[in-house]
Simulated scan of single mutants.
Amino acid sequence: MPHAEIYEHFHPDEKAFVDRAWEWVERAAELHQVRRTDFLDPRQAHILFTLANRHPDAAIRLDGGYEAAERRRAIVAPDYRPVEEEPIGIRVLDISSEDRRIKELDHGDYLGALIGLGMKRDKIGDIHPREDGCHVLIAEEIGDFLTSHLRQVHRAEVRASVVELDRLKVVTPELEEMAISVASLRLDGVASDAFRLSRAKIVDPIRAGRCRVNWKPVEDPSAPLREGDIVSMKGFGRFKVLAVEGQSKSGRFRVRIGKFV
């Protein structure tokens, strides 16, 4: 178990993952075990990286299959092991179709189809939907199952195959830009404008633990936002604070945000 002061740096909801991650680090450093994790979200990757760097005898590598990957697997190993040589175990699931409706499918449709087959989210990395299909980063161990069982996404019939990482077609997420004017950079104020909800209706989901800022749980509606922050609200979507463009004469902040579509 980590030293008590370590927990001070993390949200209480993250304690279970901190305990698990510290166990991986200790086993690598003290029992000379090599651990390959499932896909981690950016917050989990940050926690594991932080813990590994606190132990002088542990080494870590993070890899999501391509340079700008959001979700990544980790190799945690003794510091004498060359972690760059350890297999990361990531493949590309190539989903295609002759059905014209495939161009209407989005990230949520593909993720829903995979989860509907019993896949855990931890086994799935980034998802890159295109008009003619989709590439999904997956843990190599689920490849055979998916090629055998994935036959439909939403209402479109599909076929799936597994290809190597060098075949990956990366799709940069589209952002729907909005310019808003807010009294302050408080989370509830910016989020209410981003999601077009009253501040009263946005406060309850935040306090209920449905909001994350940069993948970290945030339950304080007054928490300040900064440029670059990514805010996700379960059931509403997510947005990025692209720029804070100064204050008007009345003291309101001009903010440019991008909603993920």
Results as ranks from 00 to 15, higher is better:
Gly118Ala: 05
Ile47Lys: 07
Leu137Phe: 02
Ile230Phe: 02
Thr50Gln: 09
Gly112Phe: 06
His46Ser: 13
Asp188Met: 08
Tyr66Met: 09
Asp38Gly: 08
Ala68Val: 02
Arg130Gln: 13
Arg35Trp: 10
Ala59Trp: 00
Ser248Trp: 04
Glu14His: 06
Lys249Leu: 11
Met1Cys: 09
Asp57Met: 11
Ile202His: 01
Ala223Thr: 07
Phe239Gln: 05
Ile257Glu: 02
Arg81Leu: 15
Glu174Trp: 07
Ala113Cys: 07
Arg91His: 11
Glu157Ile: 05
Glu174Asp: 13
His149Gly: 00
Asn214Cys: 07
Ala183Arg: 14
Ser161Arg: 15
His107Cys: 03
Lys249Arg: 15
Tyr66His: 13
Ala77Asp: 06
Ala74Arg: 05
Ile142Ala: 02
Ala223Tyr: 15
Gly65Asp: 05
Val83Pro: 09
Asp94Arg: 15
Asp13Ser: 15
Asp13Trp: 01
Asp94Ala: 12
Arg91Cys: 03
His149Trp: 11
Ile115Gln: 04
Asn214Val: 03
Gly133Gln: 03
Ala179Gln: 12
Arg81Lys: 12
Lys216Leu: 10
Glu5Gln: 11
Val162Ala: 06
Ile60Gln: 03
Ile206Tyr: 06
Phe10Gln: 01
Trp24Arg: 01
Asp19Lys: 05
Glu104Arg: 12
Ser181Lys: 13
His9Ser: 13
Lys103Asn: 10
Arg71Phe: 11
Val163Leu: 09
Pro42Lys: 03
Val213Leu: 09
Leu242Asp: 06
Glu85His: 12
Glu104Cys: 00
Val158Asn: 05
Ile47Leu: 10
His55Pro: 03
Gly251Leu: 07
Arg167Trp: 10
Glu14Gln: 12
Arg212Pro: 01
Gly133Ser: 03
Ala77His: 08
Glu174Ala: 14
Glu70Leu: 11
Lys259Arg: 15
Ser222Lys: 14
Arg254Asp: 10
Val241Cys: 08
Met119Cys: 15
Arg254Gly: 08
Lys249Val: 04
Glu177Asp: 09
Glu98Val: 11
Leu242Ala: 12
Asp94Glu: 13
His128Leu: 04
Gly237Trp: 07
Ser96Asp: 00
Asp144Lys: 14
Leu187Ser: 07
Ile257Gly: 02
Ala160Val: 05
Glu174Gln: 15
His46Trp: 09
Ala68Lys: 15
Gly118Arg: 05
Asp94Ile: 00
